[in-house]
Design a protein around this nucleic acid. Structure first.
Lengths: 336, 336
DNA sequence: CGCGTTTACGTCGTTCGTAACGATA
DNA sequence: TATCGTTACGAACGACGTAAACGCG
């Protein structure tokens, strides 16, 4: 058995049991891949795939379990490489992050700037998508870190570190009637206007709807969009009252928009950062984690590295107060 | 990186950083091993070992972590082989068991006979030793199953399945004064005579001593030995009153010895069988587990296989009554 | 000088890519 | 006939073993 054979095997699986496609992905010849698969199957004495004529049909039961193990092997081999690169003080490497628009646009810029400064030679890839899409990236081993809010159930392969909490903010054009209200805004005030907010994801971003329902009200959702920038555009056009994550209520918006704090109106959300439980983290990855969640001490980071189970992490953060992220000011601080 | 390089690396480590010895163990030439190590270090860009002149001095910090990972890789490769062999219905394989004398001599014979009958072509290796020695066998990956009583703390690498419980028996030569006592024997009766029993292992077989101490008595330990056969020999010679595991109070002894039940006099012991948490079990291994612990149903065996944590197993057996193993009769039944 | 490692080198087995062939829809 | 996998074969590469050199105690 050779590592290459396992690599080829996984490539075949990940390319829909198409050897030709796998060979291309591997930058090698198709007969070579075919032959190595055959050798592997011969050595093991079993069929990993069923054959339909000459083509590969499906994965056998034995194949399934072997593929599972092969992935562990390749992951550990990758871990050995990472360990070595890290001890070598290798300045080579790359960091791939899967996250949502809000994080990518409003939270990460400052953090990434700091990271860049510290590790100028480390490549950075920002993959943007919905929670579901990020989960797919995790499954395909495309990203080192996932950053999202809620949807924890989609990420059972990852260890999730709660990072900060946030409220929503209400944004309206300057001079909007809501700005004339001197007392704290209530949900009753809001139902008077069409709301412009995020598209509800499949899992349950409907916490917004529920907040209204809990007071016996029905929200008047006028328009939903995937990201805060789009929402703001439509708010500027007078389509309604925007409700976005506070982080998205940027300083620069305040020229033509007014931001109204909505603390307490809606449940607080928690944003987490997750990493594969079985992957070794290189130094720069731990540093990134630290930049993103600076409330975690170096000692705790070390504990996290060893933890290995979500329960251990949850225990670490039980009764722990997470930082609260607001808009304008926080981002200014982070960028400095 | 090649699997062979990792294999060589581990062989070097397991042979005290002696490349020559490692090469012999691997049935290959010494320069070959040396070269592959060098190639691996070159590829990784780090030193795994420090050098004292030309000899290997010690393992570097990076090396330590790499070796750890390499062991996982090799274990998973072995697992792939096992899976394949199992699906192939391969009748090849071997089963190595590490256990104590009492099990090897009095409990396992019947079980192994049954196993042999079912899997005549599977090689069987019985390694006998103290708990500590068995723990070493586990560390060196020499055995598939460990069977012992107590000393759980030595086997954190294994998943331990509680299998049965047992009491001690008192054995005396025929006509011994103790046999004249018609009521149930008490510890007070026993302190009158020198006792012949097991050597106390380091961890705490002193449960026997404690049983006496709890009643304010001091046992008169006349002689200790490692196994019941030796103890019985000395009891026959009239050196004292023997206290052994009930399983060791064999039918055949009853010609010249008398066995007195000591149930309740001493705390009950639990014998467990353990296996590596990260190793795939072949079918015959699961079958052996079933033979040894027949109170576990097929469904539970499947659960055990998936469990992976000691907590899950403990949960499975919480409030579960384990079989109680006596002497003569039980063994006769098992052998049948 | 003995022990253990590395270097050198010839041999042999393996892998790889190209090209041709076979099978399937 | 287009697509995909296998077989065939020569070239290049890599692993292995022997022999010899090197370094350390």
């Amino acid at each position: 058995m050779k590592l290459q054979q396992l690599k080829y095997l996984l490539a075949i699986v990940d390319n829909g049991l198409n050897i030709t496609a796998a060979a291309e992905r591997l930058y090698t010849s198709q007969p070579g891949v075919s032959k190595q698969l055959k050798l592997l199957e011969e050595e093991l004495g079993i069929q990993i795939f069923t054959r339909k004529g000459k083509s590969l049909g499906s994965v056998t039961a034995a194949g399934d379990r072997i593929i599972e193990r092969a992935r562990v092997v390749m992951q550990e081999v990758e871990n050995i490489r990472r360990l070595a690169a890290d001890y070598y003080e290798e300045e080579d490497g790359s960091l791939s992050i899967g996250t949502t628009h809000t994080q990518a646009r409003y939270v990460l810029p400052g953090i990434i700037a700091a990271f860049r400064k510290q590790f100028p030679k480390i490549g950075l890839n920002l993959h943007q998508g919905t929670s579901e899409q990020i989960a797919d990236m995790v499954a395909g081993n495309k990203i080192d870190f996932a950053i999202a809010t809620g949807s924890q159930e989609l990420f059972s392969d990852l260890l999730l570190v709660p990072s900060y909490r946030w409220d929503r903010s209400i944004i309206v054009p300057r001079g909007h009637p809501l700005t004339a209200i001197k007392r704290k805004i209530t949900l009753h005030d809001l139902v008077e206007y069409p709301l412009v907010t995020y598209v509800f994801s499949f899992n349950g971003e409907s916490s917004l709807k529920r907040a209204f329902a809990d007071e016996g009200l029905e929200a008047n959702i006028g328009f939903t969009a995937r990201d805060a920038d789009v929402i703001k555009t439509y708010v500027r056009m007078g389509l309604g009252v925007g409700i976005v994550a506070s982080m998205a209520a940027d300083c620069s918006d305040r020229e033509d928009l007014q931001v109204i704090d909505a603390e307490g109106l809606f449940p607080r959300s928690t944003t987490w950062i997750g990493y594969r439980r079985d992957a070794v983290m290189r130094r720069y990855m731990i540093e990134f984690l630290h930049l993103f969640a600076p409330h975690i001490s170096a000692g705790q980071l070390e504990e996290l590295r060893k933890a290995g189970t979500q329960e251990a992490i949850d225990e670490l953060f039980r009764n722990r107060k997470l930082p609260l992220r607001g808009g304008c000011d926080d981002n200014a601080i982070a960028a400095a």
